[in-house]
Amino acid sequence: MKPPPFKYARPESLDEVLGILSEHGGEARVLAGGQSLIPLLNFRLARPEVLVDIALVKELRRLAVERGVLRIGAAVTQNAVERSSDVARLCPLLKKALPFVGHLQNRMRGTVVGSIAHADPAAEVPAVTLALEATMVARSARGVREIPADRFFLGPFTTALAQDEILVEVRFPSSKKTRAAVAEVAPRSGDFAIAGVAGEVVTTRAGKVRDIALAMFGVGGSPQRLHEVEARLTGERVTDDLLDQVAALTRHTAQADSEDVHADAAYRARVSGELVRRAVREMTR
């Protein structure tokens, strides 16, 4: 389990990165934290011609808040994001989700943007971008594209990024929602989830749901926003009866087509309803 040979570049400017990607097309891969890519290399499941290490590109190492928007650059580690007070304040859901990502040692090098670009269907961070309606900023030698989260994830390990593009930044808009929750079932702590839900909510003074966002992961080939469930909850006071209805609605509407040796689709569908029930209850208690 050793990587195949490749050429390695560690440019200091984004333009150089874009140049290499443009020159090599699909044969070049961006190396950020490497927590997904290097295992793939070790298994020789990926055989890129060129690896472009972005560690030295200053502009990709930015974690900043501008006009209420949280901007996380491609080289910012999950651990740095987890510890950021800006993130805790502006994006409590992201802060809540990150401890579920791998283990401490992975988060020390793994990046938030890398997790998004990798698009593992069972990963937490992509679902968080959906729930928070984040914007992905893609760059290539051809220019800049902003892609909303709900148009970014196309399937398992498949995104809207073109071969010559790099995801340079993710932007989380400021949210008016005040409570967040992540609920998931995983075989062990640190494992990819069999099923999970990430959400946030704001309630009225009277305790009714004013606005809610929920996104599932692990259940289907891509993270999915639960619009029907959100609509069912909006304007309502959360009762046990309503939670039962919401759990049933989730089971029926969630696109549960992921199957692996750990769980079949039926289990994922069933447990997705339960997880939504728990997440919503936790947030509205």
């Binding site: 298994f43 075989p187 062990r188 702590s189 640190g190 494992d191 990819f192 692996d260 040796v261 750990h262």
Partner: peptide, 16 residues
């Protein structure tokens, strides 16, 4: 074989 890595063959950790 479908359990060809420690991500698929689950050894217990300190939390289990």
């Amino acid at each position: 074989p479908m359990s060809t890595s420690l991500l698929d063959y689950h050894l217990p950790t300190a939390t289990e």
